[in-house]
Amino acid sequence: MRQSKEFLVITFSQTTDAMAAELLFRDLCVPGRIIPIPRQLSAGCGLAFRTEMDQKQQAQQALVEAGIRWHEMEPVRLLV
């Protein structure tokens, strides 16, 4: 079976917010990338941002300061 690893996954209620967060995190050098939303967080479709677990505080603070809404910010094991 493929290996998995725990990531911090941030979900958004709409794609516009995910795109805004991606730009923000790129500017602030928050590591990670956009992924399809994992089923653990939402059955359905949409985008999420996957980053390292230790980025939670920085990511949260950056989103708050930029006024970007997020839906959930949870640890999720994902295939690597």
């Binding site: 992924i35 939303i37 994992p38 089923r39 295939l79």
Partner: peptide, 12 residues
């Protein structure tokens, strides 16, 4: 594929 989340398979 198996019980993998379709989102993860598509991402891989």
């Amino acid at each position: 594929v198996r019980e993998y989340d379709s989102s993860e398979v598509s991402d891989v």
